[in-house]
Design a protein around this nucleic acid. Structure first.
Length: 185
DNA sequence: GCGACAG
DNA sequence: ATCTTGTCGC
């Protein structure tokens, strides 16, 4: 899942891309275009992106077994980020993979692909900083709904065979912005 | 009070 | 998130 935005307007395009975990190939693609009415406020991302993301998901020929979000799950100020909203609303397993640190502090994970460190706040373990590529900045994984942190971590690494960003999110980013630039306004 | 702040 | 080309490095 991902959304691309146009500058100076509320125009945006959301993309839902399903990837086969076995062959890592794109299965289905669904796009949703429309105005975004909620501003970007750190901590309230779900209220901004949820409507268009749900619309894109509804357009898929078959519901995905697992939903990977571009953002956080429970590693959130109120322990309920975008991935939690999506998973709960769809009653589907979900988790989030964010590109930058947000709330929890963490140690630097090992440099090798697959290595990770804990994202924690006090006694609460909120997620993991996961290295998807050796020697490259980690991504931040946290649980959304009905999935373990271990499974979310494994899927994130398996779905990132070549780039830092996992294939589902990467493909969704590519097709959404491609569609955005294809027909602006 | 100040800084930081998913996308 | 978005505006942008080349360039440094493995």
């Amino acid at each position: 899942m991902d959304i691309s935005y146009a500058i100076g307007s509320d125009h945006a395009v959301a993309a839902a891309v399903t990837i086969g975990v076995q062959d890592l190939r794109v299965r289905d693609v669904s796009l949703a275009t429309g105005p975004v009415r909620f501003p970007y406020v750190p901590g309230l991302l779900a209220f901004r992106e949820l409507p268009l993301l749900l619309e894109a998901l509804a357009g898929l020929p078959a519901p995905p077994e697992m939903v990977m979000c571009d953002g956080y799950g429970i590693a959130h100020p109120r322990r309920f980020g975008l991935a939690c909203h999506l998973g709960l609303l769809l009653d589907r397993p979900s988790f989030g993979v964010a590109k930058t640190d947000f709330v929890a502090g963490h140690d630097e994970p090992g440099a090798r692909r697959g290595q990770w460190s804990v994202l924690a706040e006090g006694d609460a373990i909120l997620g993991r900083a996961v290295r998807t590529r050796t020697g490259v900045k980690p991504v931040y994984v946290s649980v959304g709904h009905r999935v373990s942190l271990g499974d979310a971590t494994d899927l994130t690494v398996r779905l990132s065979p070549r780039y830092r960003i996992p294939e589902p999110t990467r493909q969704a980013d590519i097709v959404s912005r491609q569609e955005l630039r294809r027909g602006p306004s």
